[in-house]
Design a binder for these strands. Structure first.
Lengths: 110, 110
DNA sequence: TGTCTATTTGGCTAAATGACCAAATACGAA
DNA sequence: TTCGTATTTGGTCATTTAGCCAAATAGACA
């Protein structure tokens, strides 16, 4: 693989990797609806604050969210709402898999 | 987080995680153009055959590709071409980041 | 200033990932 | 059957990831 191409795929992978975690997907979805502070997200995710904070820094490093300090909270926002479009397709893959699985099960029962 | 919701996010994360690797992204892109056998993909990726084979099994387990044996090769196909739609958005994120980065650099030079 | 709340950071551990090599398998063709 | 090619599997090792706890920081406000 050529160097330039390799670099490009690495950049893409970094973004996808940042999204590829259940808690982070939840946060992305919530942030698409409205901005939230770490505390609120922690509540929603149901993990340690430090854990959530680290997840947020992963999202931030990937450029997926931005943060803004206001009053005594830090509010996070989804920077590129288009990432939500992914989800539709991911769901398609999931249901295709379920379909496939059903087919296999049916075949085995015979 | 509720159990059902957690499960759903885990399913989504699994798909994204399967995509989140440079070599796998390359393979996905190539397979979207046409089916390919392990050998060809190995060549394109430029890694050990066994490594590529394992990447393919990751994609297959996620339900992203399917394989079919023909002649003396195993041909892999992209099952859900819609995953390519992701890339457009990922690229948007990347260029937004680059933009941001440029802005920061400019600010520092002053 | 001192206190409280919100958030991040450092340290540690367990688990997952990715790469390679060597070896095993699968299978078509001589 | 035996050979050779294509592919997968198992082993090993280094790296990364994710979680929690404890401790450090950052500010707001009394």
């Amino acid at each position: 693989m050529k160097e330039a191409l390799r670099t490009r795929y690495e950049a893409r992978a970094r973004i996808l990797k940042a999204m590829a975690h259940p808690s982070r997907l939840l946060m992305i979805e919530e942030l698409q609806k409205q901005e939230r502070c770490v505390n609120e997200l922690t509540e929603m995710v149901g993990a340690d604050t430090s854990t959530v904070s680290k997840h947020l820094s992963v999202l931030k490093n990937a450029g997926l969210v931005s943060d803004e300090k206001r009053a005594n909270c830090i509010y996070y926002t989804l920077r590129c709402p288009c990432v939500m479009d992914f989800i539709g397709c991911v769901e398609e893959v999931i249901s295709a898999n379920a379909e496939e699985h059903k087919k296999i099960m049916k075949c085995c029962k015979k």
